[in-house]
Amino acid sequence: MSALLEIEDLRVTFRTRYGEVTALDSVSLQVNAGETLGIVGESGCGKSITALSVMGLIPSPPGKIAGGSIRLNGEELIGVSPARMRALRGSDVAMIFQEPMTSLNPVFTVGDQIAEAIMLHQKVSPDQAFRDAVALLDRVGIPSPDRRARDYPHQLSGGMRQRVMIAMAVSCRPKVLIADEPTTALDVTVQAQIFDLLNEIQRDFGAAIMLITHDMGAISEMADRVAVMYAGRVIETATADDVLDLPQHPYARGLIDCIPTLGRADHALKEIPGVVPPLHLLGKGCAFADRCAYKFDRCDAEKPLLTDHGRHPVACHGAEEGRI
């Protein structure tokens, strides 16, 4: 079965004052229908850029898709006409952003904003679109949706706004729903509600979800498969259980060790030493080498490729040679 969304060898570069910087380097991902793919990694590792590439929303200039391919349902999205991209955006592939507080337009009512998304892709009357918007608000669990649809974003709480964003994103029943850290700005109880809602939506609408997060808890709750990203590359990809239980890459292990365990006060919380190197300073070796406890000569000399060494694909020389 071919995947619903296939990203192959995607390369995205940004022009900066340090010259051209590669933000994404040979990123390959697949999302199947009805599946949730989690993408994890630290800030700046390229998660959001991957999502924006799929949406065709890379700010250009300075950004540029330098190579690779993105196929949605077999249709190539790179180099497609702007009109076609607009038609796909919001209807076939939709996105939920991480900042519900600022992602809604302050001068339109939330009902109008959802209705606009509907009218952009379906031939319905404004009245019908607004009624659909109210139904969607009801679906995402907003109380008295009739009244709330006439509210402006500033009258809603953060959690409510994120529900509105979700309603807007699913309004045209997209095949792929990209959720870019949908719960980062929300408090913990609301986070759980939003994840439940996303799960329900997926069940009802059959959408594939690409969940971008740095929260391993969210991954274990939501994702079927996981791709771990580091410095613009995918370094490990497997089912969620495999990555959580048997991480191969030292970085993935580090991420999982960072999860605090409830009820174990004696257990010192681990951390990954160092920070992600600036993208313009990446050498020819493994980008994680300087922070890695298992580093050996080869790590500085050549970039590891994402290959299967028995369990699941991982980009690590140490794993390849069985040192880890």
Binding site: M55, L57, A87, R89, G90, F97, E116
Partner: peptide
Amino acid sequence: GSDYIRTARAKGAG
């Protein structure tokens, strides 16, 4: 430059 402009584009607005 604001987020809601990105949202509008993500909806497919021209």
